[in-house]
Structure formats: C-alpha cells, structure tokens
Simulated scan of single mutants.
Amino acid sequence: MVVQTLSEVLALVGPSRAQRIQVRNGRFELDVTLRPEPGGNPAAAETGTSADSAKTDSSADAAPVDCPAPDTIPVTAPAIGVFHRCPAPGKPPFVEVGDRAAAGDELGLVEAMKVFTPVVADRAGTVSAIHVADRQLVEYGQPLVDLLPDPADEPPTGRRTA
C-alpha cells in the first residue's frame, strides 16, 4: 500500500520535482519536499505532510519532456529510482557528453531500495546528451542519455546496393 501511494504521489508531483520523500509506517505519514520551479525562489520549496496535504495540481508540476534529436537513440531508465552518474562518491562520471560508448558499456546506475541496476548502452555510439543530473529521481522508461549511433553499428535497412 505504501509503495502504491508513493507511486501516486510521484505521478502527481513529477519525479524531477521531488527533492526528498520521507515515509513513516506507524499511522502512515508521508512528507514530500519539492524542488523549486526553474526560475522561481529557491527558498520557496514546498513541503507536504500526510497523504492528504501532499496532493498537488499535476498539470502545474508536470516535468518538461525532452525531445531527442531524430538521429539519436535514447537510453532509458530500467526502473524507478535514483540515477547515479558516478560509480561511487568522489569518482568521475561513467560518461560525459562527447564520450564514445561501446555496446554493453555502463552509462550510469539506477538505485531502487539499495539495489543498483546498470544503465547500459545497447549499441555503440557517442554520448550526445545527458538528460538527468546525478542523484536525480527517475521514472521507468525515462530518457537518461542520448547516443548518436556509430554508422557501422546501424541496423541494416534491407536495401541492397549494386
């Protein structure tokens, strides 16, 4: 029940707005702290306590949708969780924009309930965009990294040349 309620709250506020989520199970209580809107007052982060006061207008809190370039391949989140760009605190990120990744290379990690799931390139390419910050909450299927595929790694089109 708590997981379902937490999923509903994240759907309402948008995962990129949730800065801190605290859940207590005795007489269920939920505390959500939101990041301020871009361009807004950073000191004006909202806090809701209990499931009733955590409800917000979902249209006002919708996260912006990134539109990848038509020639790039998005690498998406394998699960809901926290995206880690670095393998460990103090270590450099797995990849930066402009880096080349081979098929199977780790591009990041998604942590959910202390389980780390690798975000893996399914084909070789050059990192053209990174859509989320380190330690940002992400949704399943959310684009994390865009790859510009290597021409040699393109799937065949079925056309024959003579």
Rank of each mutant, 00 (worst) to 15 (best):
V2S: 14
V2T: 13
E8F: 08
G14A: 12
G14D: 11
P15W: 13
S16I: 03
S16W: 06
R17N: 15
Q19K: 09
R20P: 03
I21C: 09
Q22D: 09
D31K: 13
V32W: 15
V32C: 12
L34W: 07
R35P: 05
R35L: 12
P42G: 14
P42T: 05
A43V: 01
E46W: 10
G48W: 15
D52Y: 08
A54T: 11
K55I: 03
K55T: 01
D71T: 04
T72F: 01
I73G: 00
V75C: 02
V75D: 10
T76N: 13
A77L: 08
A79W: 06
G81Q: 04
G81H: 11
F83H: 03
P87G: 09
A88H: 06
A88D: 09
P89S: 12
K91V: 07
P92V: 08
E96D: 10
E96I: 00
R100Q: 14
A102W: 02
G104N: 06
D105M: 15
D105C: 10
D105L: 12
L109N: 07
L109Y: 06
E111L: 09
V115N: 12
P118M: 07
D122P: 05
R123A: 00
A124L: 02
V127C: 11
V132S: 09
R135E: 07
V145A: 14
D146P: 01
L147H: 00
L147S: 02
L148N: 00
P151Y: 12
E154Y: 05
G158C: 15
R159S: 15
T161C: 14
T161L: 13
